[in-house]
Each structure stands twice: as C-alpha cells, then as structure tokens.
Design a protein around this nucleic acid. Structure first.
Lengths: 124, 124
DNA sequence: TTAGCTGCAAAGAGTTTGCTGGGAG
DNA sequence: CTCCCAGCAAACTCTTTGCAGCTAA
C-alpha cells in the first residue's frame, strides 16, 4: 500500500519534509494523490511514527519520530534553508518548568532564525 | 488613524494576540475591516514595532516587539491556553551556535507543549 | 464481508491583493 | 496635489473532508 512508500520517503530523508516534497518524491515511483499523502501523514502522526512541526512559514514539516531527533532548526531567512542542530539541551529547562509551574510538558519545538554562513559569504 | 487603535490593543495586552482577536477588540471602538488589521499588522512588523510568531496551530500571534519579551510559550494541548515563560535563557545557546556554525542568529521561537496544571487537575 | 485505502472535487481557514475611493499633510 | 489609508471582494495557499469505488484480509 501507498502508506509504505510515503513512510519510506520520510525514513530515508535526513531532513524534515513538507507534504508537497513527499508527494513529489513518492510520485516518481507510483501514482498517488495529494490528499492521500496528507491523510497518510496524519495517520502516521497519530500513530507516533512521524512527527509534524509547523514552522514560521506556516507549512507543516514531517520527519521520522525519534526520541533522539533534535527538532531544533536553524532557518536561513535569506535562502530558506533549514539546518538542524543538537546543541540545545532543553530537557533540563523542560524539567525545571515542570517542577516550578506544574505544567506537564510532553514536547517542544525550537526555531532559530537568521542568515546561514553560505548567504553571509555570498552577501559580501 | 486606525493604526493607532490596533497598535494600542497590542500595547495594552499582556498576551500575544491573533489578528482576529485584535480585530474583535478594535471593532468594539471603531469600524474596521479585517484586511486593514492584517495590513496594519504587517506594517508594524516591518517596522519592528510588533513581533509575529506562528505557532503550531498555524495561526500568527502578534505582540509588542520588546527585547525583553520572552516569546517562549507553554501551550496546553487540552485547553489551548498559552502561558509565557522566561525561564529559558537561549541567548547562551544562540551564541554557542553562532560561534560553532557561523550561522548569524537574529531571532528564535520556542514552544513547549503539554497539559497545564488546571487541565491536569480537572482530569482527575 | 468488513474495514481500511484511494481519487476526485469541493470546501475551509487564515491571509493577501487589486482596485477604488477617501482623508491627511 | 500627493500619498498613504481603508473597504470590499476576490484570490491564494495549505490542508481537510465527503463521497463513492476499490482493495485486502
């Protein structure tokens, strides 16, 4: 079934992908409808196999659900490239907030915006 | 002009607001069109007077631009309430990333998701 | 058979835009 | 006289949904 094709694309991608990117990728191998992609993605998210993150561009990005996935992005406002980083340990902060506010934190998203080294270089 | 009314609502709100909330608020005092609200908001954002943040619900939230504004939110997945926190000092992390990757970070957004104390209590 | 997958077209939500008239300096 | 502001309706983008047919266990 098509779900496997869609899931495979996500599994094999080092980056998070938009529904459209996944659609384009899957379409190279099989016929599929955009609705099916969206439906399947929501399905995978519900089953906690895939993680969905909405970024500042208002587009949802999907990636393999994985405890070790950082889900922290450096996003270049010039070229729109996204780079992930693992440099920020927010678990410590999350624990602190939980302790001091009683808020039961289950997930988080972090986005840094700026200009990537490549674009800085090109601007000169 | 209406820009002042819109800006005032933002200035006087302790929370970040959606365009619709601002529209409703302003409408209590003067006649205004939703397009005008959006246009004015984009204007204020361009002038760095107001900050716009897109959250996981895909809705843009606006608040007064202010260096001291935390822009870190605790969002309850049950009641959708949003609470801001100042507990996380990301500047340190931002500096580290800048130093180690050459990425010139200019802003960031952070969202914690979970269940707020109130909803935890009500669930029992 | 029963349940879950699909495609298609239409709807939906939030936001933007083109056009036009109006008000401020 | 200009130029920016405002209203209105239409357009746009990403995403969801209803319906009907199909597929697999």
């Amino acid at each position: 079934m098509k779900k496997d094709f869609i899931f495979d694309v996500i599994k094999n991608s080092p980056n998070s992908l938009t529904a459209e990117e996944i659609y384009n990728d899957v379409s190279q191998n099989i016929d599929v409808n955009l609705s099916t992609v969206y439906r399947t993605l929501n399905n995978l998210v519900d089953k906690n196999l895939v993680t969905k993150v909405v970024r500042q561009d208002k587009i949802a990005y999907y990636e393999l659900a994985n405890e070790e996935n950082p889900k922290h992005y450096l996003i270049c406002d010039k070229c729109s490239g996204a780079f992930s980083t693992e440099m920020c340990n927010l678990d410590k902060i999350a624990r602190k907030i939980k302790r001091e506010t009683g808020f039961n934190i289950t997930s988080h998203t972090l986005e840094f915006h700026g200009i990537c080294p490549e674009c800085i270089k090109n601007a000169k």
